[in-house]
């Protein structure tokens, strides 16, 4: 009825337009950078590139992918992401299983729970954390990027809420049949929780790929940096001399197109997993909010 009223139709037209404009605004900056990275140096310096490459060329990508420092950072970024995600997910899943037991069945559970929640509310701050990491032997190694951030309390809470909402008959049956907690966890809980585990894994992958600050403070040399830290140093700080980009070559290939190609490659893995992410993250957010 009201859908046919004139005022509602006018509102609808404006509404569709507004949402279309807002949605486009969210990706136009990325499209622009991609277009610049595929344009010629002349077009980029003349500032005539908008959302479509001008004088299409792959020179910038050749330069970026031929830069061994960039490739090394890319490989370290992949390594850090995979190792960090596997490590963090294992630690968090095991803890979440134990915490999903009620305090009646697992006395002491509430003490553990508060131990972790307090971490979420209070922290020692940047300097004391830095001093601890730098004195525990993992300083200046890839482990400094993996271990200190492994206990993600938020993921832990989402997973424990998920475990708690599984039918308790599952666990009872398993324990009565003689399986211990380890077997119940690995053979019963993990397989039936795959959607939740997948969601958390994707979030953790994105977190690790995007993390850059820990690399900058815990690693001393640029040749150990993962891609995100490397990008911060060259793209944001414009610290070209340190990265070993040949300055004479830069004259041939526009600094701006190379930079754009590096930014785009830095964003590419996220764009690739985004369709999977989108499938799961709505579920992932609702996951934590359903409580009994």
């Amino acid at each position: 009825m009201h859908y046919r009223s004139t005022s509602y139709t006018i509102f609808s037209i404006f509404n569709y337009l507004l949402i279309a404009v807002l949605s486009l605004l969210c990706i136009l900056p990325m499209i622009h950078i991609f277009a610049v990275s595929l344009s010629s140096k002349a077009a980029a310096t003349a500032n005539i590139v908008n959302f479509w490459p001008v004088e299409l060329t792959f020179a910038a990508y050749k330069e970026t992918l031929g830069n061994e420092n960039f490739l090394r950072a890319l490989m370290i970024g992949v390594q850090r992401t995979l190792m960090g995600t596997a490590f963090s997910m294992s630690v968090v899943l095991m803890a979440a299983y134990s915490l999903s037991k009620s305090d009646l069945r697992f006395r002491g559970r509430n003490i553990y729970a508060w131990f972790f929640v307090f971490m979420m509310l209070f922290n020692g701050g940047l300097i004391p954390t830095y001093l601890v990491v730098s004195s525990t032997g993992i300083y200046d190694t890839i482990w400094a990027l993996i271990i200190p951030s492994a206990v993600n309390v938020w993921n832990m809470i989402l997973l424990l809420n998920f475990f708690r909402n599984l039918p308790s008959e599952l666990e009872e049956a398993s324990l009565i049949d003689g399986a211990g907690h380890f077997r119940t966890f690995f053979l019963i809980y993990l397989p039936v929780s795959m959607p939740a585990v997948a969601t958390m894994t994707l979030f953790t992958l994105v977190f690790h790929w995007n993390s850059w600050f820990d690399g900058i403070i815990y690693l001393t040399k640029m040749d150990k940096y993962p891609l995100a830290s490397f990008l911060h140093t060259i793209v944001v700080k414009e610290n070209f001399s340190e990265v070993g980009v040949d300055v004479t070559r830069l004259a041939e290939i526009s600094n701006r197109t190379v930079k754009s190609s590096q930014i785009f490659i830095g964003a590419l893995p996220i764009l690739l997993v985004y369709p999977f992410l989108q499938k799961y993250f709505v579920k992932g957010i609702v996951l934590g909010s359903v409580k009994e």
Binding site: S90, V91, V92, M94, A95, Y97, S98, L99, K101, F106, R107, G108, R109, Y112, F115, F116, M119, F122, N123, G124, G125, I127, P128, T129, L131, V132, V133, T136, I147, P148, A150, V151, M156, G180, H181, F182, F185
Partner: peptide
Amino acid sequence: TWPLHVLLLPAVIIALIYSYVPMLGI
């Protein structure tokens, strides 16, 4: 309950070292 404590152990150790020791470092 010992398996439940064991499953919590890695998270507790990491949290103690990298979150609680820095709190003392204050």
